[in-house]
Design a protein around this nucleic acid. Structure first.
Lengths: 336, 336
DNA sequence: TTGTATGCGTTATCAT
DNA sequence: ATGATAACGCATACAA
């Protein structure tokens, strides 16, 4: 490994001079700086991020937290889109990304400890159980954080507009003549609560009554559980005309169940998903759904986190709402 | 931040003693060690991975490389499964994961330089263009690496069994009476070459003639291009009875095109995919495909990399083949 | 404009 | 069994 010491020897200057020259300090003679840079390149010098981090107290490394307890693992396309955009933006800004987890090898650490252990300058909490004390500890610590789809008090967050997303879907379905709307929802997270509330409120506004048996629990990203919920809905004496699924993938579970009962989409039953992942638009029939701006959420999360890291003194927590868009698809039949 | 110095003061011992006690050195009095550990916990001490790395020359950090040029990005479910299992196994073994990329912020680094810059103990090259000089530089450097689905000379690799996978699919289709098999393949990577060769060879073995126009190029993970290829096949005077798609997702593009032509799967046309991602099994009709052992591949990659890192002297490069399994699905009709 | 000295937190060597 | 000291590679305050 070639270090600044090697360069200093090769150039006949001190290590301090080399360090300054390489970092573009203003008090180095241009000729000297040039000579040093040339030597550095010639010798194949690479800065050592570890040593630098130890010295300056900044690692230029940000943690990303995906606890896959609630179907929020990396394999969920919504989250992998977020991960990809967080990564891209962080790298653009000169930061690397490290996963934060519990229990690294033999040591038992919680998330906060892991982030400290790796000297992360900040952490993006992308998917987590926000009731978990370990998450709360991290999110309320002195480490800069940005949470996605959840806001801790006086903390920065990036929020998908679940309320408007659900409202847009309900209105779209309503405009297509539907009055009997059923909603299969995921686990009871705050996101789920917002969606249910918005579903209920929009229905009420539009004068639609939602019988309790039209609201059914399932599990995000789990086609099987949505299939079961679908079956329950089909067995109702008074069937809905449209089913809302927790997410795009779960819709596939419902689809199978509908087929099994001889129910065709959208002829006999209309359906909508949620997320608007690319998959939803290559399915046939093309799914009616609401696209969450996953890529933009990731980009913003990285951007705001870095801003917070680099300007901690003037930082004001922000809660940014990222809008999505309705993807009309063709799984909602006009029964007006 | 509480350091070993703080502990040493609190305990009235030297920093060296604290370090030894915390690392379970044998030459510390049990009572002293106990006292030190208690103080460490009481003070909320956390080891500093950065300082440790600088001192011992090991970062306990491994790089993961996904260059998404060939549709191998993280959002591809096959790769996200690999990423997830690499991550899980690495963490189990006490290693963190950092993404390796080109061009971090203002600095322009290639992959090798990035890995050195972060002092990665090793790198898993999960998805890349293996002709890229930057990839070759990394993979042939002194840094321990494990590549997936490609073998560099005298290097460790984890390989999905593309030859047998393709053979299994062809035989399955053959046994269902098909003799006119078309193959839409992805970009010309070494994986693709293996699949094409195996497709051709198995067909030859079975006495099937494959006209040149039955082999069509497309792009991995891109339903649109597979749709176009499908259309070309449908316009042939002598249509195939079964179409092989580059991957499971691409099949969806073909499906749309088939529908548009009034061709029903599997009644009028049989199809098979490749990958066997979870999605393929929740689609209706359930896709006939070959499941690559993505999770096992990731686990093995992490395991072998760590072994190589920790026992560099006794290390022998290995090329491990991970078997998959045929998922029969229901998109191949028996026309025997 | 350049160099000297110091320390970031840790571990390893060698005394004691 | 414990401690003093040096070193990992780098950046910075301050001296020259």
């Amino acid at each position: 490994m070639v270090t600044i010491t090697d360069i200093s020897k090769a150039c006949g200057v001190s290590r301090a001079t080399v360090s300054k020259a390489l970092n573009g300090a203003p008090d180095i003679a241009p000729k000297t700086a040039e000579r040093i840079r040339e030597q550095a390149k010639a010798l194949g010098y690479l800065p050592n991020a570890t040593a630098r981090a130890l010295k300056v107290g900044r690692s230029y490394n940000i943690g990303v937290l995906f606890s896959d307890t609630t179907g929020g693992g990396i394999t969920h396309e919504y989250f992998s889109q977020i991960l990809e955009s967080v990564k891209a933006e962080a790298e653009r800004l000169g930061y690397d990304i490290t996963f934060i987890s519990k229990d690294l090898g033999a040591m038992s650490m919680d998330y906060y400890e892991h982030a400290k252990y790796r000297s992360c300058d900040g952490v993006v909490i992308a998917s987590a159980d926000f009731q978990d004390p370990a998450i709360i500890r991290l999110a309320t610590s002195e480490i800069p954080t940005v949470t996605l789809d959840y806001t801790f008090d006086s903390r920065t967050s990036i929020l998908s507009d679940n309320v408007r997303g659900m409202e847009a879907l309900v209105r779209f379905v309503y405009e297509n003549g539907h009055r009997k709307l059923a909603f299969i929802h995921g686990e009871m997270t705050s996101v789920t609560q917002k969606r249910i509330a918005s579903f209920r409120k929009t229905c009420a506004t539009l004068g639609i009554t939602v019988p309790p048996e039209y609201i059914r629990p399932a599990v995000y990203h789990d086609p099987r559980s949505s299939g079961l919920a679908t079956r329950a809905l089909l067995e109702l004496p008074n069937r809905p005309t449209c089913i809302f699924y927790p997410d795009d993938l779960s819709f596939l579970g419902g689809m199978s169940e509908l087929e099994r009962h001889g129910v065709t989409v959208p002829k006999d039953m209309s359906v909508v998903g949620y997320d608007g992942i690319p998959l939803s638009q290559v399915l046939r029939p093309k799914l009616t759904t609401y696209r969450q701006g996953a890529a933009e959420m990731g980009t913003q999360a990285a951007r705001l986190l870095v801003e917070q890291i680099e300007h901690p003194d003037t930082w004001l927590p922000q809660n940014i709402m990222v809008e999505g868009e309705l993807l009309p698809g063709s799984t909602v039949r006009n029964i007006g």
